[in-house]
Simulated assay, not measured.
Amino acid sequence: MKISTSAESQTTNLKVNILLETREDGSMIASILELPQYHVEAATREQALLKLNQLLVQHLEKIEVIPYVVILIELLPPLIPPYKGGKQENPVPSPL
């Protein structure tokens, strides 16, 4: 199997899912589902979201996000020959 790769840098938005948890005392814990190491605690929901956003922006200023695509190219012929005229040529017995 041959692997072809491409990488190109571009500016894009980062969409994440935020988990908000209300503690017994009414304070909030906010974390990013895709990046669980980023979590904050605050007195209110708005403060928690603001603090989490600031933390993420601060981190993203130091890194580069690069979309990366791996293209897999299959070099082997298919296991089952294509159908012609409604009949399968050289039928291969099913392993089941």
Rank of each mutant, 00 (worst) to 15 (best):
I3D: 00
T5H: 01
T5A: 00
S6N: 03
A7V: 10
Q10G: 04
T12H: 05
L14P: 11
L14R: 12
L14F: 12
K15D: 05
N17P: 01
I18T: 14
I18P: 04
I18S: 06
L19G: 08
E21S: 14
E21Q: 14
T22Q: 11
R23Y: 01
E24A: 13
G26R: 07
S27L: 00
I29Y: 02
A30P: 04
L33H: 05
Q37W: 10
Y38T: 11
A42V: 05
A43R: 11
T44W: 09
T44P: 10
R45T: 06
Q47A: 13
Q47K: 13
Q47Y: 03
L49V: 03
L49C: 03
L50E: 12
L52T: 06
L52F: 03
N53S: 14
N53C: 07
Q54N: 09
Q54D: 10
Q54L: 07
V57P: 09
Q58C: 10
Q58L: 14
E61Y: 10
E61A: 14
E64A: 11
I66F: 04
I66N: 02
P67N: 01
P67F: 00
P67G: 01
Y68N: 02
V69W: 00
V69K: 07
V70A: 02
V70N: 01
I71H: 06
L72E: 09
L76W: 00
L79S: 12
P81W: 04
P82L: 05
P82I: 02
K84A: 08
K84P: 00
G85F: 08
K87D: 05
Q88W: 06
E89G: 03
N90A: 10
P91T: 11
S94K: 04
L96P: 02
L96D: 09
L96Q: 08
